[in-house]
Amino acid sequence: MTAVSHTLRRRRWALAGTATALALVVAGCTSNTPEDEGTAQAPAVAATGNDEPGDKVTIGFSAPAADHGWMGAITKAAVAEAAKYPDLELVQAEATNDVNLQISQIEQFINDGVDAIVLLPFDGAALTEVATKAMQAGIAVVNVDREFSDPNAARTTVLGDNYGMGVSAGTFICEQLGGKTDAKVAEIAGIDSLPLTQDRSRGFKDALAACGLTVSNRVAADFTVQGGEAAAANLLQAAPKLDAIWNHDDDQGVGVLAAIENAGRDEFFMVGGAGSKNVMDAIKADNTVLKATVIYPSTQAADGIKLARLLVQGKSMSDLVEVEVPRTIQLYAPVVTKENVDQYLPTAFES
């Protein structure tokens, strides 16, 4: 990358917050009236070659500690994706759940003059200020999974769909129960104080309501095997008859399945959440109550790496007509069953 282009791109990110605000004003004044048929013109040349080597890119990457299978997969996938590009240097900070340490890591990236930062913050609100500082320094920030409190602290944000997970799980259960309006449906949530858990539960409740069902029994765990087993044991004791269970998290689902086996219960079917390999293997084998899981992609940081590279090199997403990388990308929450499990196994994470 030449000194001139490097300076221009840094100036571009430093002005990103102002540009975003202006774009919102312009969008509000733009007519939504469609053009007459035949007047719109397709671009002359489709965007291609995004994976071809380009200008050298240095990306700083920081994420929480891998104390959970999904989080471990996040970092592993990001590192593997970065290794595919000879024009990309990844500077990986030590994974940490210490907010102050993560802030100092981002400050170090700023001091080192990296081109972009891909950041999965331990606490989005707490990392907002330092991410804003990076943007003001002309460094493209890609926010992953846990949102900053100010969207202008990032050029692009990559998210899973927590509400959509609940909707997908609830819709699948409705379909499987086939209009049985007196069915007993249970829910084993994650940590109730987290917005992500609240979003998942809200989506689940809304989807069930659409087919005349409600959550008859609900307990919360803590995303751990031990917590899942304890919560499930309490649930099963309180509910002598169930038709379906949705467990929010496949890591804690290892404990949930252990509790179900210990209780000798099999009158219901179970849906998992997140998309672990062991759960997908069980779905494929079809020899437990576990019949499906809902994906919360562990590819988010890997997607962030690809997007950061495109941003720095001034490229767009080749499958879009738009000439800029989008501001927000929310990944889908599909249901994985025995019929389609082979499609999703390659990106499943180890619990």
Results as ranks from 00 to 15, higher is better:
T197V: 12
L177K: 03
G69A: 11
N247F: 02
K315V: 05
G138M: 12
V114C: 13
A244Y: 10
E107Y: 04
E81Q: 09
A169S: 08
I59K: 06
P121H: 03
G113P: 09
V130T: 14
V141F: 12
A19Y: 07
L177T: 10
H6D: 14
F109H: 09
A83L: 00
L90Q: 12
V185R: 01
A3I: 14
D182G: 05
L22M: 05
D55W: 06
C174M: 04
K291H: 06
K277Y: 08
E350N: 12
Y332C: 00
E81I: 04
V215K: 03
R218P: 00
M165V: 00
Q330E: 14
F223R: 03
P34A: 05
P43G: 14
T2L: 01
R9S: 06
L257T: 04
V25Y: 10
K76M: 09
D123L: 04
N97D: 07
M165I: 04
E107D: 15
V79E: 11
P195D: 11
A23C: 08
A292V: 00
R202Q: 12
K76F: 03
G164N: 03
V118D: 13
L320M: 15
F172M: 01
G314I: 13
L119D: 12
G17Y: 01
H6E: 15
A186D: 06
S201I: 03
S168I: 01
E175S: 09
L90A: 05
